[in-house]
Design a binder for these strands. Structure first.
Length: 339
DNA sequence: ACTTGCCACTCTTCGGTATC
DNA sequence: GATACCGAAGAGTGGCAAGT
């Protein structure tokens, strides 16, 4: 219970404070105007630095893995909230953000200052000068990393940028084909991730497969004796990868199936090696039904790849549109999560 | 040392504007 | 017209300065 005197004192204090606030005489907080780096900033900025860049719709999911106060969804934050975070990062000079393609949200990448702040050893790349194919490829890899690390707890992702930074380049030395990412399981298993969005030639694809399956010994033998000899001579060698996952749209998947089958039929690969090469769908599967179809397609392709050369049905080609409509806010839809 | 209340920050939602 | 951008409003939370 407050006495009349106490009430007067409180009123006087409020009046005094009101004057202080309006005249600006109240002392400012010591951290006023400073952008502080919190745990989520650190994790998200490191993630972006490792992946080169991220598009705003994916950033909603990345930040949503550790939603702040008041977030209404478990896995993602709203477009406005993600934009606010980017604005804060920009004001701190940690990132640059630019729209690159029409009808797509902007991309965010770390500035030199951002990379140094996160202790990342990479050189700053300006994404504005990146070609559109590379951008599509990067978007696919980001979607794959977000989904796989979301689905499977405890796995560690090593990005292509991290892998490249570990390579010591020697003059005249051919570089082993690097995967777009690696998944490391706690039991020591390693899976190479390839996002094959557009077709490359069958020979180039076959060589990438051989290098991923057999590793640097295959490359050494190829340099010395040529690819034909190397394929025979390297049969006892195995790369560090337990499996190689190729994520690809339908047309590219057919090429991978055919190249894999061809390598087996001519004896360049044995069946155990072919087993290690798993072809998966991009856009990524979402439902149990799609996962079953994905597995069945790979099984059929292993039995008889010619079966898959049948004309594509309209329903099948429309699959990605159906998914975008169903989970429009999800990883690979161009529309943003705005609910 | 503890309490109070302001301030900075983060979040969502919504509406106006710009761009394709 | 559809989509992206931008900013304002309002609510909630935690840190900090000031008071007790």
């Amino acid at each position: 219970m407050s006495s009349p005197h106490n009430s007067e004192v409180t009123q006087e204090r409020r009046k005094k404070e009101a004057i202080q606030i309006t005249t600006g005489s109240r002392k400012k907080r010591s951290d006023a105007g400073i952008v502080l780096c919190n745990d989520r900033d650190e994790q998200a900025l490191t993630w972006i630095g490792q992946q080169y860049a991220i598009r705003l719709d994916h950033l909603q999911w990345l930040l949503g893995s550790q939603p702040g106060r008041g977030a209404q969804h478990e896995a993602w934050i709203s477009e406005g909230a993600a934009r606010a975070v980017v604005t804060r990062w920009k004001s701190a000079g940690w990132v640059q953000a630019e729209r690159i393609r029409a009808k797509e949200p902007f991309w965010v990448w770390l500035t030199h200052r951002g990379l140094r702040k996160m202790g990342l050893p990479y050189t700053s790349n300006d994404l504005e000068h990146t070609d559109l194919d590379a951008l599509r490829h990067l978007h696919a890899i980001n979607a794959i990393r977000l989904q796989l690390t979301h689905e499977q707890e405890g796995i560690r992702w090593i990005s292509e940028r991290q892998l490249l930074s570990r390579i010591v380049r020697r003059k005249g030395q051919t570089l082993l084909h690097r995967s777009d990412g690696e998944i490391h399981y706690s039991d020591g298993d390693i899976i190479a991730i390839e996002a094959e969005i557009s077709s490359k030639g069958p020979f180039k694809l076959a060589e990438n497969l051989m290098e991923l399956l057999r590793g640097k010994e295959y490359l050494r033998l190829k340099d010395e004796y040529g690819w034909q000899q190397a394929r025979m001579m390297s049969q006892s060698y195995e790369s560090e990868y337990d499996q190689i996952w190729y994520f690809a749209p339908k047309k590219v998947r057919r090429l991978v199936y055919n190249v894999r089958a061809k390598l087996v039929s001519v004896g360049d690969l044995d069946s155990a090696e072919a087993e290690r090469l798993v072809v998966r769908w991009y856009p990524l599967t979402q439902t149990d039904e799609e996962i079953e179809q994905e597995e069945q397609e790979d099984r059929e392709a292993r039995r008889d790849p010619a079966l898959l050369d049948a004309p594509v049905s309209i329903e099948d080609d429309d699959r990605s549109l159906v998914i975008v409509a169903r989970v429009g806010h999800l990883l690979f839809g161009s529309s943003l999560a705005r609910e």
